[in-house]
């Protein structure tokens, strides 16, 4: 049996003009492991995810995927290698139908080089998309424009688009945020069930401790940019530090306000690249 981790993070550190956002991160994730990432807002969870998928370049430290150094890799190359992600605010094509979203995702992952000039709506691709959509309960929305759909459906679509290339590691950034409470569990059942079947390693950021308890094998608790606890959920959620800094602060009355400003700052991300990307 191969015991080497699929993802290994060593001494990862990130600071923004002097402000430390993450430090001393050391994590190993085994194949097929489901890891919950918890922590208050600003604890460094999303920075951690962003560094692994190449959106942010770490200040120092190393990220290895299946033994290969992927530190500071471009997001698209991370995708090619098998490290994919979903987003806190669903990043889907709002003006297109669910099927079109899926077709674009699938055709991009299949067509390399000149074959990218093949028709994107080939029957075999449509069939494959329909299969994935069935697995993710998206079939009934097939031809609806995404902007008309609920947050929960968008989240599912976001994740479904991330798994078309059959990643080895999937990072989910708050898969249930913005989803109504009665939808949370069904969505996680679908997603985690599917990912377990394919043996994908999952890291997901989550605020809802019930969800963490139910689905994860292991918990990473973040506080002020550091991992303060790395243990199975039953143990982690009893850890006094976790209770003080994570679970307790989860009920902090300030939280919703802070969260919403964070979101509006994020929404124009696409537009902010108006000046210049790269």
């Amino acid at each position: 049996m191969d015991n080497s981790p699929i993802l290994r993070v060593t001494d990862l550190h990130k600071s923004f003009s002097g402000i430390v956002a993450a430090s001393n991160l050391n994590v190993d994730v085994a194949e097929g492991e489901i890891v919950g990432v918890i922590g208050a807002n600003g604890a460094g969870k999303t920075v951690f995810i962003n560094m692994i998928t190449g959106y942010l370049k770490p200040s120092s430290g190393k990220i290895e995927f299946a033994g290969k150094d992927i530190t500071g890799i471009e997001p698209r190359n991370a995708t090619h290698m098998g490290v994919c992600r979903s987003f806190q605010v669903s990043q889907v094509f709002m003006t297109m139908s669910v099927l079109e979203n899926m077709l674009i995702a699938l055709s991009v992952s299949k067509d390399r080089g000149f074959s990218i000039l093949q028709a994107y709506d080939r029957p075999e691709l449509i069939a494959e998309c329909e299969q994935i959509m069935a697995r993710y309960n998206l079939s009934e929305f097939r031809d609806l424009e995404v902007s008309t759909l609920s947050q929960g459906v968008r989240k599912l679509l976001d994740i479904a688009m991330a798994i078309v290339s059959e990643p080895k590691v999937l990072l989910l950034d708050e898969p249930t945020s913005g989803v109504s409470s009665e939808d949370k569990f069904p969505i996680m059942d679908v997603v985690i069930g599917d990912l377990k079947k394919s043996g994908t390693s999952v890291l997901f950021v989550e605020h809802d401790m019930e969800i963490v308890e139910r689905y994860v094998d292991r918990v990473l608790a973040f506080y002020q940019g550091e991992i303060i606890c790395d243990a199975p959920p039953a143990e982690a959620l009893k850890d006094p530090k976790v209770i003080e800094y994570v679970v307790g602060s989860d009920h902090d009355p300030k939280k919703p306000a802070r969260k919403s400003t964070k979101k509006t700052a994020r929404k124009p991300a696409k537009k902010s690249s108006g000046v210049r990307r790269a």
């Binding site: 959106y55 700052a265 994020r266 124009p268 991300a269 902010s272 000046v275 210049r276």
Partner: peptide, 14 residues
């Protein structure tokens, strides 16, 4: 310097 010589640099959002 696409924002021009004198415009304050806008922080990157995300």
């Amino acid at each position: 310097r696409p924002e021009g010589l004198f415009a304050p640099a806008v922080a990157r959002k995300i």
